[in-house]
Design a protein around this nucleic acid. Structure first.
Lengths: 220, 220
DNA sequence: CGCGAATTACTCTAGTTAGAGTATTCGAGT
DNA sequence: ACTCGAATACTCTAACTAGAGTAATTCGCG
């Protein structure tokens, strides 16, 4: 029986490790602890995930309550297998780096489909947005009361550290493009000139290979 | 008609922007250009994605070929709407930062469910793996031939920049935990002591609130 | 004390995705 | 001439996910 592969399942297990809960309480608790910023959460997924954990025997329904005319709430608890799965799986997620496929990395890798001037402007706009987000985080961090355990802010700090790295990277990239310092920029510009001049993709590529092919001898 | 929300769809559009292709050629091209490192690719998704782009009118079947007894290959081309969608959507992905929900961020945010000593060891192991990956990337970069356009390596460099930021962050975290310098570490340790001593999650939480509650007055 | 907004508590559907499975052809070696 | 593995080219299924929709209850305000 394979473990489910999404962070929400793991979050459910850790919540039930604290105490038995019904799904709605799980979602409220996650929300209240601001875990929705680091774990994708919506009801559709939550109920599906709970059901799949139950099927796998990692959690079990403890009781079903009804208050007034509201829908039933089923309270779940962690099984022993669930506790083991939680430990194993959380351990793996902490220990093993796995490739992450972010949107921006994909966008960077496909950036060539836009003319360099356009890409440059877009990157500058991203930079503004990221600097703003970063300042906002600083603001929030500054208002955390004295003595509030940093432990509860690790995810946020991690995310901020990555954001800062991205800012630095994009600043450099913007600078390189602006000052004609990025290797391959001529090719990139040239292909869009050819396309703009009415050549088909195939014609443009053929010309490019003629003009710059020698640089691409080996594609690592 | 909403745009599909996955990077593979966008990759398909950019490929067809270059020239008409059949799905298998798309996958080979992506693979050959090492785009599978930045864009999640598998056949199941690819054929589904192609079909959904066709339904949306962003790409169109141009012809169906058959060679020998092999399965048919349908060659697709980009429609004008597809070209517009590609530009708009790639622009958005470059311009707008969106929250990314990585596994490690989730793991960090749930780390409390493991005792601190265990988490510490796991983080050290991650560090080793990340340093190794980073060295490997250095190695690959070093063997790129002179004059090979850096433009084709942007995604990889971006990914490496984030990895380095992660390494720095985790090094600091490991250091803070090791030297008892992380705020909230006592609480974290204490709750696992109580659990290990046989208290239920609820009892342990109650005791914790008694002992440390004053620190948590406001939960931002 | 009555009205609308917010909160509680889900359900449903359509779309997406991973991963395994299938079948053919080609080329390198024996 | 034969076979074994790699490459070609998909298909299928089960699971997962997002997002919208539903409906009761409670809270705050005039």
């Amino acid at each position: 029986m394979k473990r489910p592969a999404n962070a929400l399942s793991l979050a459910v297990l850790t919540l039930l490790f604290e105490k038995p809960m019904h799904p709605y309480e799980m979602s409220s608790t996650l929300r209240q602890r601001s875990k929705e910023e680091s774990i994708r959460l919506n009801y559709g997924s939550l109920y599906a995930v709970v059901e799949s954990l139950r099927k796998k025997g990692l959690i079990a329904a403890r009781e079903t309550l009804r208050e007034g005319n509201r829908p039933e709430r089923t309270v779940y608890e962690l099984t022993d297998e669930g506790a083991t799965a939680m430990r194993d799986w959380l351990s793996e997620m902490l220990r093993d780096p796995t490739p992450q496929f972010t949107d921006f990395e994909a966008a960077l890798s496909l950036m060539g489909a836009l003319p360099p001037e356009e890409a440059l402007e877009l990157l500058k706009l991203r930079l503004r947005a990221q600097r703003l987000a970063s300042n906002q985080y600083d603001g929030v961090r500054a208002h955390v009361p004295e003595g509030f355990p940093a432990f509860f802010l690790v995810e946020g700090d991690y995310s901020e550290a990555l954001r800062l790295a991205e800012i630095t990277f994009v600043e450099k990239l913007v600078d390189d493009i602006s000052h004609d310092r990025l290797g391959g920029l001529e090719m990139w510009r040239r292909i869009h000139e050819l396309r703009a001049a009415g050549h088909s993709g195939e014609e443009a590529t053929a010309k490019l290979m003629d003009e710059f092919g020698h640089l691409l001898g080996i594609d690592p």
